[in-house]
Nucleic acid binder design. Structure first.
Lengths: 260, 260
DNA sequence: AAACAAATTCCGCAAGGCGAAACGAGTGTT
DNA sequence: AACACTCGTTTCGCCTTGCGGAATTTGTTT
């Protein structure tokens, strides 16, 4: 009876719904219920339910006028985000290695999550006292140089929205006053780089800059992190300037694609 | 008990599995079973099954080494195909309108399906006797100018594979001999355009040219179709030359993106 | 080696997915 | 205008099969 007895853990409704999703996607054009049902040999009622579910989840789009389905915003959004992350990571990696060698400190790459930044790559300095992050970790925006760099270049509305979220206190130095944060962000927008001194992790500091896409939107951020003791303000400023240059190069390459 | 009683036709396992897919995708990095389970408040066993299913369908990828999951090839493939189709359609539309006005005949745009071509756009001439295709229709490759244009520029291995499939006889004039078809395709490769005279639909003809991506792969084809009586060989040749120019422009714009 | 954590397997229950059939809306045909 | 047809939607009762707690295995850390 089972059509795919390969893996006993395969959930049939899910598998069949994915086949529906795939068929719709591969059709290159909106397709109707009956056509899907016939093509996949799945009873009309069942197909109907899957299409409804996929649509409710945003993976498909239901054209009321023609009663047909095609790819939905959710899938496109996921694909776009994934492509963006891959591309940034790929473009940034060589530059990150260069920066690591230049400063002999850990270099981090992160993208914007929801109220947080998520590390998507990092190149660690070969020192015994190293920094903490792991790929996939997420930290608050307001307590990291990576987050501040992104916040400073976000469209006003979105920045306000982010700052409206509750701000967690990571260390005694974490900035929590709205006024203070906004003042710093304006400064970041002017100088082009953000610094953070023990605001996210005691004894650690970070200098970060945004990476902008063709529309000037901060899709990611690049940073150098170090123990506070190894990175005085003067060196941090120097790092900020270098980061700004490097990030500008990456942004330019990203932006060379005319927006879709 | 039901979490989303909105739509009574929503299939819960499918919906929850899609949430899992979305979470993994949004995580920007590979994620482990337990993390997904905790995040979505879905029992570990169930989450496990969904991850297995999504992986079996190719939507996720399971990293055996780290026992973590991330986006799979299927999703990327769907996204790529979709983006490609959208982009070609968008780029080609103005040119298609121009061609329609120039020749006062229907202009068609199609992509490669599996052994077939699929119409993804068309601009119809305002004449009483018009051609037949509708967006989403698919026709055999070997019996259409669109298909021949694509076949002629396919890598050898793939072209052979396509021609190995059974060739349906659409009209009395449809080419069915392997030798004859291959000879024509070589001619198409030389001249840069393909013609078809009553081989797909009695009384109708078509002139088609390929649209190539940055790698020279024929992702789509552009054609002008007309009743045989209105388009003698001499005019068809003229149309072929124009189509070649127009398609070259579209191909160039497509190719301006360095490959990912 | 023990202790822990995470992934996989097992199993019985009943939630809920399935699909035949009926219904209704829309379209085209005579 | 009435009819026939197709396609999408809804209903309903059967019973498959998905669910999740718990046990087991795997592999990682102290």
């Amino acid at each position: 009876m089972a059509k795919k007895p390969d893996n006993p853990y395969v959930v049939q409704p899910v598998m069949k719904a994915l086949k529906v999703l795939e068929l719709v996607a591969r059709h290159s054009h909106e397709i109707a219920l009956t056509a899907v049902s016939k093509e996949l040999k799945i009873p009309k009622t069942t197909t109907f339910r899957y299409l409804q579910t996929l649509t409710a989840a945003g993976f498909l789009d239901h054209n009321r006028a023609t009663d047909r389905y095609n790819l939905g915003p959710q899938l496109r959004s996921i694909a776009r985000a994934d492509a963006s992350v891959s591309k940034v990571r790929e473009l940034a990696r060589p530059a990150m290695i260069g920066l690591m060698q230049e400063f002999n400190e850990t270099v981090n790459l992160a993208v914007k999550g929801n109220g947080t930044i998520v590390y998507i790559d990092l190149v660690e300095a070969n020192r015994s006292l190293r920094m903490q992050a792991r790929i996939g970790d997420s930290h608050p925006m307001h307590s990291t140089a990576l987050g501040k760099a992104i916040l400073a270049f976000l469209p006003d509305a979105e920045r306000q929205h982010q700052l409206d979220l509750p701000l967690t206190e990571r260390t005694g130095r974490t900035l929590l006053e709205r006024e203070e944060i906004e003042r710093q962000l304006r400064q970041v927008a002017r100088s082009g780089y953000a610094t953070e001194m023990g605001e996210n992790e005691d004894g650690a500091m970070c200098v970060g800059v945004p990476i902008l896409d063709a529309d000037g939107y901060p899709v990611a951020a690049l940073s150098i992190s170090a123990p506070l003791m190894r990175m005085p303000h003067s060196l941090a400023a120097k790092a900020g300037v270098r980061l700004r240059e490097v990030a500008a190069g990456i942004s330019a390459t990203l932006g060379s694609h005319p927006p879709g």
